[in-house]
């Protein structure tokens, strides 16, 4: 089984480390981006199977990333889990409309997150067109 690649877009270094430890322990490959701009370029380069996107990014928030992802052909279909500390009720709709597949609030429950990742990854086969 090829392990899936997950892109985590998160500005907080500690939180990134936490992601890495957790995800790697569950046999996922990880790559990271610290801000919106890097997110795009890393995504294009790595073509992850799933993106975990923190909305509270510097220099353009996560919604910008979502938009940009939607505009790029090969990136459009990657499932995105949006993570935010912000009030989910306000942001959830917007995120989902913008193309995210799920919304998770910080701090999350690790088991729930892992299950969600599993679900989304299993859903994605085969990758479907526009």
């Amino acid at each position: 089984m090829s392990s899936k690649k997950l892109l985590v877009v998160e500005d907080d270094a500690d939180v990134r480390l936490g992601y890495r430890v957790l995800l790697r322990a569950h046999d996922y490959q990880t790559c990271f981006a610290e801000d919106a701009a890097l997110a795009l370029s890393v995504a294009r380069k790595e073509l992850p199977d799933l993106i975990i996107l923190d909305l509270g990014l510097p220099a353009g928030d996560g919604f910008v990333v979502l938009e940009r992802l939607a505009n790029v052909a090969e990136l459009r279909s990657i499932p995105v889990i949006v993570v935010s500390a912000r009030d989910h009720r306000i942001n959830e709709d917007r995120a989902l409309k913008a193309g995210a597949r799920a919304y998770v609030q910080k701090p999350w429950d690790d088991d729930a997150l892992l299950a969600l990742i599993r679900h989304l990854l299993s859903q994605g086969q085969p990758l479907l067109g526009p």
């Binding site: 907080d12 939180v15 992601y19 430890v21 957790l22 935010s84 500390a85 701090p107």
Partner: peptide, 12 residues
């Protein structure tokens, strides 16, 4: 928002 961020790291 701000409180949740450090909390995330702690929890992680």
């Amino acid at each position: 928002h701000e409180l949740r961020s450090p909390l995330t790291a702690i929890k992680q």
